[in-house]
Design a binder for these strands. Structure first.
Lengths: 260, 260
DNA sequence: CCGACTTTGTGCATGCGTTCACAAGCGGTA
DNA sequence: TACCGCTTGTGAACGCATGCACAAAGTCGG
């Protein structure tokens, strides 16, 4: 069904049959972690580290060692028992599975504060995501270069996206405009969308949407503040300088007690 | 153990004993969704809607109706069978559980592109999160007001955070500075951190960290692009205008087929 | 006042993801 | 070559979250 818009996609590494089967089976959560491993590994590589064990890597990535090994096993067996993993080998395999062997053009829609920040991010963290198009409704912004790219009017979205083979659309508009922008992106053939607007987007199910929602993040933190504060109050009625009921799973980095 | 810094916390709504027990049991995933429901409900409230059924609300929030009811049941039974939920009642209960009955001062560290965007966000989406402090290492920025708040030097972080009772710290620094900034926030008594830097932060386990990682989001999307493209290629060898093996879970909004 | 209809709240089964624990495999060493 | 210690890869158990299906509980019309 999908993407045969623009034959430019042929530069992608073809993926072995065995890998194809695997890729389909990788849990979403594991994919997210693979991206983290990749960053940690890249850092190690830059520092000249050539080999790493699951224990080391898992600590650096902040996860359980067993989980890390299982995650890596989803993409194949590239470790050496008794030794560990070759950093470069791992990097290249993760990059291949994540589809980072080719570039993904990014379009940012909505050049407000956030849009500016995104456009200026400079090659986007973790290269491979060049921002090739910017859009806004504001006629005064059209033609103004932001981060080296001139802004286009939002009405040109379809033509420009197709022309520049945009594969990822970033929505950084005010909430009311988000759904409309999303629809336009979709009809321009964009199948992946990163949405910063605090809105639940409706999309056909061949389109992948990821949401970054500041308000939600803040409120989750708020929830924990409230829970903590509450526990503290009610722990005061408890035993001595008590450990409190919350699952205190040992290994405390602690040493960070608040003054009395 | 926790937070007895500043008695200013007394303005929080006390939470009934029954609620305290509940709050501890709410799954993290459900908390995130509650925040979404809250936003949708607020929007409805603004439009004068006073009652809503689980079916309507769940559609607006993009989730399963049963899941929504279960989520709401975590915070208590505030619906009326045969009728639905009272919007205002639901709003106030969710706000209470999420700890939104009091303000949470926010400090933003790192006033680059992103920091600017955050500081200018204007009262932060979903009020209740006033930005009360900004920090940067750059001496030239100190004193400059951004979004109405003058920037402080990062060395003042402890004093200022304590003075202004900051409860949430936002890290928007370059990666190398993130851990150091985090440590300083923690020693200033900040127990909740929202991290935009692509770094795995090490914190004592009484501190809650949430990560917003652009690179990871992009790479997850990239993964899906790759998977899709690959499926498309190999589906070409398949049956007729085939439905493709990917779990096509009915209810397609579709009508978005790409031209042949 | 009663019965039919609507919608909530939840017990239960299912599936996914995490964790444990250990066998298999490899390098180093005598 | 044979042994030993270390680390991977994974089968299996566990736990959490999702989705289903239905009883409980309320409203509305007659």
């Amino acid at each position: 069904m999908a993407a045969q818009r623009g034959e430019g996609e042929t530069t992608a590494t073809p993926l072995e049959p065995a890998d194809r089967e695997r890729a389909r089976a990788i849990p979403e959560a594991a994919v997210a972690r693979l991206a983290v491993y990749l960053r940690v590994l890249s850092g190690m590589s830059d520092q000249g580290v050539t080999a790493v064990s699951s224990e080391e890597l898992s600590q650096a990535a902040g996860v359980n060692a067993a989980k890390l090994r299982k995650d890596l096993s989803y993409i194949g067996s590239y470790g050496t028992r008794g030794v560990g993993y070759d950093v470069e080998v791992l990097v290249s395999h993760i990059e291949r599975i994540l589809g980072l062997t080719r570039n993904h053009s990014v379009a940012v829609v909505g050049i407000g504060n956030l849009g500016h920040a995104l456009a200026n991010y400079g090659g986007f963290p973790g290269r491979g995501f060049p921002v090739t198009a910017l859009f806004d409704v504001d006629a005064d912004l059209v033609g103004v270069p932001v981060g080296g790219i001139p802004v286009n009017h939002i009405d040109e979205i379809t033509a420009v996206c197709i022309e520049r083979e945009v594969s990822i659309g970033v929505i950084a508009t005010p909430p009311p405009a988000a759904q409309s922008v999303c629809d336009r992106l979709v009809s321009a053939g964009v199948q992946c969308i990163l949405n910063f607007a605090p809105v639940v987007l409706q999309v056909p199910d061949n389109v992948e949407v990821r949401k970054v929602d500041l308000a939600v993040e803040m409120q989750i933190l708020s929830f924990h503040v409230a829970r903590r504060a509450d526990e503290a109050v009610h722990a005061a009625g408890g035993v001595s300088a008590g450990i409190g009921p919350a699952g205190n799973n040992g290994h405390g980095v602690d040493g960070m007690v608040i003054r009395p």
